[in-house]
Structures are given as structure tokens and as C-alpha cells.
Computed example of a mutant assay.
Amino acid sequence: MKRLLFLLLCVMVLSACSKGEKKVENDFPLHMEVGDFTGVNQDGKKVSYSDLKGKVWVVDFMFTNCDTVCSPMTANMAELQRKLTDEDIDAHLVSFSIDPENDQPGVLKEYASGVGANFSNWDLVTGYKQEFIESFANKSFMAAAAKLEGSNQFVHSTSFYLVDEKGIVLQKYEGVSEPPYEQIVKDIKSLQ
């Protein structure tokens, strides 16, 4: 009986000690490597994978002519940006347009300005071929991205993705309806 109590006490102490530790990659459900990309942001400045190395970033996929989910997702990304700023958390936001033909830099800037975006740590990226972004979303994020036949609309993921400083996708979150802001902030803090 004493031995059982001792073991139980050891387990409780060890579990209590581990709660204060930082999360490591293995604590997250995903482990996908982001592929290389090059595009331009809302200011027409080059943005590439190498520019984000060493940073924690949150990614989504959107397009400005979207009839449904992109507007709330973009507003939610802006809200996440405000929460990160309030917590003094250094993280970068990246929104990849899945309609690069229409979403030129000025169009993206006007669109995100409408939700109060701060462009100091948020890049809305375009400037690549349609085939590239569809393949990139699928291979790097296991996310759908495809033009609907006979329409100006696209099928795409509605998640926010957490990427660590090594370019590994670690977690995805609901991006449209009630994003888990507190959990996203907590997870980003755990990586810093």
C-alpha cells in the first residue's frame, strides 16, 4: 500500500512539474513542412519562405471576391492581430490569396484595410500562378484550394494554421466562426 501511495505521489508531482514547461513540437497534432514560396505582398514587396524563417506565423487562405467565408476570416485574423499586440507577442500573419489573377497588391491592401489590418506584421500574399497556390496549399497544409468550374469562386480551407520558426505547421484552428483566440495566443506563447 505504501508503495502504491508513493508511486501515485510521484506521478502527481511529475505531472504538476510538467505543466509549466514550454510546449514542444511533439505536443502539437500536426507536423507538416511548409514548402518554398515567393510572392508579393499588399505593398508589392517580395515575400518568400526565407523571409519568415525564424518567425512564428499564422496562415490562412482567402480571396477578395469571396461570397462567403473570407470576409469573416479576414476580420477574425485582424482580431487575432489585435490580441497578439495586446499581449506583446511577436508573431507574423500571412494570408495567401488563392485568386492571384484578381488579387493584385492594391486590391489586397484595400480589402484588409477595411478590417483595420496593421501591415507591420501581416502580409497578404499574391503574385504566383494559380496552379502553384493550389499545389502549395495542398502539399504544405493539406488544405484544399481550387477554382470552382464556371464560377469566380474558389474552394479553400477556412482554418488558421500555426507555423513554427522552423517552417513546420503544428496546429490548425477554426478561422470563420468563433476562432479560439485564447488557445492560439497560448500556443504561440509556448513556442517563444
Rank of each mutant, 00 (worst) to 15 (best):
W122L: 13
D51T: 02
L84G: 06
C17F: 05
D90H: 14
L30W: 06
L80N: 02
K147I: 11
L30N: 10
V107H: 00
P180E: 12
F119V: 04
L52I: 09
S95N: 15
I184Q: 09
G54N: 10
I133R: 05
A143M: 11
Q192G: 07
H92D: 08
A144Y: 09
K147F: 02
E110C: 05
N152P: 13
D51E: 09
E79C: 13
L93E: 03
L5D: 00
N138L: 11
F136Y: 01
S190A: 14
L52K: 13
D123S: 15
Y181P: 01
M142R: 07
G39M: 07
G116Y: 13
C66W: 10
V56F: 05
K22M: 04
F96Q: 03
M142W: 02
Y173T: 10
L93P: 09
D164T: 12
S71F: 02
T158W: 06
I89L: 01
E87G: 13
D27Q: 14
K166H: 12
Q104T: 11
E149N: 02
K23W: 11
D187E: 02
N26G: 11
K55R: 13
S151Y: 12
L84E: 08
I89G: 02
S95T: 13
P72A: 06
K186L: 08
N118P: 15
A75G: 15
F28M: 05
L30M: 06
A16C: 15
I168A: 05
K172S: 07
F160C: 09
A75V: 15
M1Y: 10
V169E: 11
E21N: 07
D88E: 04
S190E: 15
V107P: 06
G114N: 12
S120K: 06
W122F: 00
F141T: 12
S120G: 00
S97A: 10
V185M: 12
S135E: 10
K23F: 14
Q171Y: 04
T126K: 01
V125R: 13
L9W: 12
A75S: 15
Q42S: 03
N138A: 06
E21R: 09
K83C: 14
M32H: 00
